[in-house]
Structures are given as structure tokens and as C-alpha cells.
Design a protein around this nucleic acid. Structure first.
Lengths: 119, 119
DNA sequence: TTTATAGTTGAACAATCATTCAACTGTTTG
DNA sequence: CAAACAGTTGAATGATTGTTCAACTATAAA
């Protein structure tokens, strides 16, 4: 048996039919992994605040630092994460870098989350 | 100045009007913190797989362990997280515990996430 | 009552990650 | 050119967290 096929699970199969049926309908491993990675970006309150703020208005790094009462460095690190996830875009104007949201789905995702936690 | 009011930010305010305006419209600190906590649950591929599976069908712990090729213990730990976040419910039938989704928004949240990563 | 199995739980370990700090780049202004 | 400031970056640190392991509970069957 190949290493990748080793069975790690420590129990007998109880409902083989259900397992097979669900297995067939599941998206592929990599896609679900990417989905979890996507939600990792939403799983930090600083990034949530930044995205919420940018949904209200385009802002520069200093503005965000003042708004959230954090250092420019901390903000910049998180903006890097948001850039890599293609959730924000930016434009430079002299020394100042203005960030804004790149994706329309963000607010919708926030709304769905809010619906759950407000129940 | 009280400790909680200390200014940590290391820069001058560039656009005070924008900062004020956005600050007024931002939800309160705690609510955004809860929102990030909610997305933390979606930020792990094992939990994403479990939720996706339970959206297809009610399943017991053993079925999930076989489906995802993991130990019952690992699955059980993650189900605990999902229970605490009120995302799954369960019913006991003898020795077997059947889990199912509790929230209707889950699939919608997955869809929005998929829309982003498929672009 | 003994055995077997489904499931849970707490501690330990390894990996991940947010923030801090210091050093750096690049642009503007005097 | 030199000083000042917006922003970025890499390393270090502390905190969080997913999985493993072993021990445990509870139910069912022999």
C-alpha cells in the first residue's frame, strides 16, 4: 500500500453508502484548502477592521494607523497579507500610498458573518 | 492621559476628516472582534471539509473520520469548536453521535469565498 | 459482568502567525 | 545635498492553535 493511501482512521465504517455519496460530491482537496486559506485572511480583527474601513473610504497607511491606533509597521504588514490575497489594491501619490478594496464580495461576506453572530 | 487612551500610532494625521468619518461608521470594537472570531472557524481546512460534508448529509464521527482519513480524536476536537461556535448540532442514537449543520448561512459564505478564489 | 466500540477530553508538542523593533527605501522640502 | 516623513521589510518574540497520544465515559452485545 502506498504511503499516500495509508488509512489513518481508527474505526470501522458505519455508513459506507453515505461516506461514498458525500465523497463524490466534495470539491477537490486543494480547492477546500484554498477556501480555508481565504478565510484565514478574515480571521484577524486587525484585518477585518482595515477591510471594513476601506469599504467606507480609500485610506492611506497613516490614516489607518491613526484610526486603529496602531503603528504604521503593523498596518503595513497586514496590508501586505491583504495585497497577497488580492483583497486590496493601492495607488501611490508622492510619498503617500492609498489603499482601497479590490473585491466586491467582501462586504457580502461580512454581512453573512454578522447575521450569524447577531442571532 | 489614561492608559487606554494612549496614542500608539507613530505618525501625523494626514486626512483627519476621512478618519473621523470612517470612525463614526465603524461597528464597535467588540463586534468586529467577534466577526474575526467567527471567521477563525472557517480558517481551517479540516473544519471546512467537515462543514462541507455535513451540508451534504448528516454524519457520525466515524463516518467523518473515514471520509477525511483522520482519527476520531482529531475530528472530535474540531467538532467541539464547531459546536461552541453554534455551527453544528448533534443527536445521539445509542453509541453513535450524528452531527449536522445548524446554520443556513454556511453554504452561502462558502459560495462567496469560492467566487473570490475562482477569479 | 466482561468485552468491544463510539466518542470525548486534557496535556504535550509542533507549527503558524500578529506585533514589535530596527533598519531600510523613496519622495518631498528647505 | 541634507533633513524629514510615508511606507516597507526581515528577524525576533510571544501567543495561539491543530494534531497526537493516552486515558477516560457511555452504550451495546456476548
Amino acid at each position: 500500500m502506498a504511503k499516500s493511501e495509508q488509512v489513518i482512521c481508527d474505526c470501522e465504517v458505519i455508513h459506507q453508502d453515505i461516506v461514498n455519496q458525500v465523497s463524490d460530491r466534495m470539491p477537490e482537496e486543494g480547492e477546500l484548502y484554498d477556501l480555508a486559506d481565504f478565510f484565514k485572511v478574515f480571521a484577524d480583527s486587525t484585518r477585518v477592521k482595515i477591510m471594513w474601513a476601506l469599504d467606507e473610504s480609500e485610506m492611506c497607511v497613516c490614516d489607518l494607523a491613526v484610526l486603529l491606533n496602531m503603528t504604521k509597521s503593523a498596518i503595513s504588514h497586514q496590508l501586505r497579507t491583504l495585497r497577497q490575497s488580492k483583497l486590496v489594491k493601492y495607488r501611490k501619490e508622492g510619498k503617500v500610498v492609498y489603499y482601497s478594496l479590490k473585491d466586491d464580495h467582501i462586504k457580502e461576506i461580512f454581512e453573512k458573518g454578522m447575521e450569524h453572530i447577531r442571532e
